[in-house]
Design a protein around this nucleic acid. Structure first.
Lengths: 340, 340
DNA sequence: TAGCTTCCCCGAACCGGTTCGATGAAGTGA
DNA sequence: TCACTTCATCGAACCGGTTCGGGGAAGCTA
């Protein structure tokens, strides 16, 4: 079932069918009706590869996401879902590309072989060669996250600095003086992950401002690591009364560690951080947190990318989001320390 | 940078370049070397659309996944990740397709426009028109899950009947007599979702076998619904001492409901079910559960699909998995009922 | 040296669309 | 009635690969 067959049955030329479908040149009502009739009857749909070859656009965007080797966080799932949905609304498909160990290979497939018109990058690093590489090629890209020098590029990001600081201020306002910070895994921090660095910065500075005593930790992206991390926190400074976490996947483990240490949340110990709302609500007590608007971020990234694809010369745009802290049940006034 | 340019610079014809790359006809070492030199120098990669048009294969598989409107479960994330990784190993890309409200439209894109060579379907229903439709078209498909009549089709599934039954027996062995069942949302049960139905069946039959008193509930895919559901369970029969859940996303809410009702897990109340291991470990106490091997299922689905694509006449194959229950900390001997 | 293989390579056709220039018919005005 | 515009359509080229049939040069045999 190709366009030639449609043309034959409708008694017109292939180009007329093409114009009838695209509307790029006028076609008489009579023939348009005839063509549409044949198309409906045969259920014809134009071949995507042929179309892509002819007009140079694939109607597909690439979503470059972190390798599965690491643990996924729920946030990433929300991103993927919202990106796919938003893209569908613009008639774009989404091609998944793991930016794993061999990220070059994936990139070659996506860009070199021209499988996609543009890309959305997740898990941005402060110094990110992927971003630089794509920028050098002038390849339409939108980053979810921003590098150390985001000027002139397209991105939608979270103000981790401000969010971590807000958490600190929230705890300080409640009277906490000794606070721990639970970051993403050390490996990611060393690799320069944006959220890990900016979050740490925001935390450290705000804590200094408020004169808090702090310790910072890296923690694996899973429950077991969270539990171990919490044990270390209480071991290093038993007088700690609160923590701030960027590590969604470790949250369950942190809570478990607290239970096993006999610290009641929020009476003896307050917990807060930057976590997607849906996941903040699964723990008991529910987590007071800056809710990561993953759905909105995915949607906006698609909006930006589509805009960039439609108007190649448009000036770079971006969105920096800083959602407020949602007060739930995991923070409270600092007590007199652990019940002993 | 197209194949013609490479040919020109290497001083050969386009077809020779093509054969040098594909190896489908012998090419002298001398010219092959020359061609490779030019390719390396220019960083040439063949255009995917052109190749797909010419040989009728896109090297892409479609992953049809549930709409974002519903809440995602962590399990689905694991599927997606493992499918993408396994596909990459076979040099296939993965195109995401939301099977949302307008699933026809997505299908038209994937199949009608020939964007993919084959598809993997998630969230199968007992009577699934998508599966029937694809089978009628003889379109290469592998389902993650199986319909009521899976004979003659390709799938990898979980033996929900056996798993739910195993949970019941585990609880019965511990002396529990009044057990609740927490299913997926009613809307999904009514829609005929496989896991919801087979799980319910397995639970009901095993409970009858063991002479247990049971009640079954549907529950929304989020923590708040889980909490409400647990309140209903204890309201309907305060003597309930255990529950089995298929609903991963509600798990946190169920736990919270128990905490708020003053039931200690596992002393006063046992919880078990069918949940991906990673998520079972995030709750406290860790959930004793049949661990959904999401990663393995995704990988096997890709294996089957690739096999089917490579050998179109191969006999249908499938994998039915029934992982054992992992004993963790959420079940214990039935006590004398709630501490009052 | 004629005849026959074998080895490499070339040219052309094809995949299924899009797009540009051309063409013929109908319509308009002088 | 002729020249000129407008409208609808057609044919051919093109996108960038793959694949098939053919053919020239070299090598081998008699």
């Amino acid at each position: 079932m190709n366009i030639g067959e449609i043309a034959r049955r409708a008694g017109v030329s292939r180009s007329t069918v093409s114009y009838a479908l695209s509307g790029k040149r006028p076609v008489s009502n009579e023939t348009r009706r005839k063509i549409q009739e044949v198309i409906d009857e045969l259920g014809y749909r134009p071949n995507a590869s042929a179309r892509a070859l002819a007009n140079g656009r694939t109607s597909t965007i690439g979503l470059v996401f972190p390798p599965a080797g690491n643990h996924y966080t729920g946030m990433q799932l929300d991103f993927i879902g919202s990106v796919v949905e938003a893209a569908a609304a613009y008639d774009y498909d989404v091609l998944l590309s793991p930016s794993g160990v061999d990220s070059d290979r994936s990139f070659q497939r996506l860009l070199g072989e021209r499988r996609v018109d543009g890309a959305i990058l997740m898990e941005i690093r402060l110094e990110d060669d992927r971003v630089d590489h794509l920028a050098a090629l002038d390849f339409p890209t939108v980053a979810i996250g921003r590098t150390a020098h985001p000027e002139g590029s397209w991105w939608v990001g979270l103000d981790h600095t401000a969010l971590a600081a807000a958490c600190v201020h929230h705890l300080a306002d409640l009277g906490h003086r000794r606070v721990a910070f639970v970051n993403r895994p050390e490996q990611l921090l060393r690799a320069g992950y944006e959220s890990a660095h900016r979050g740490l910065d925001g935390f450290t500075k705000a804590a200094a401002e408020r004169g808090l005593t702090v310790r910072t930790y890296c923690c694996g992206d899973d429950a077991a690591s969270g539990q171990v991390c919490l044990e270390r926190i209480l071991h290093d400074d038993p007088a700690t009364t609160a923590l701030v976490t960027l590590n969604e996947a470790a949250l369950g483990g942190l809570y478990r560690g607290l239970v096993e240490a006999g610290r009641h949340v929020p009476r003896d110990f307050s917990v807060t951080g930057v976590v997607a709302g849906r996941w903040a609500e699964t723990v008991t007590p529910q987590l007071t947190a800056a809710d990561v608007p993953a759905e909105e971020m995915g949607r906006r990234a698609v909006d930006l990318l589509v805009e960039r694809l439609d108007r190649p010369d448009a000036a770079p745009r971006h969105h920096l989001l800083a959602p407020p802290i949602s007060l739930r049940a995991s923070t409270g006034p600092a007590g007199t320390g652990p019940a002993s």
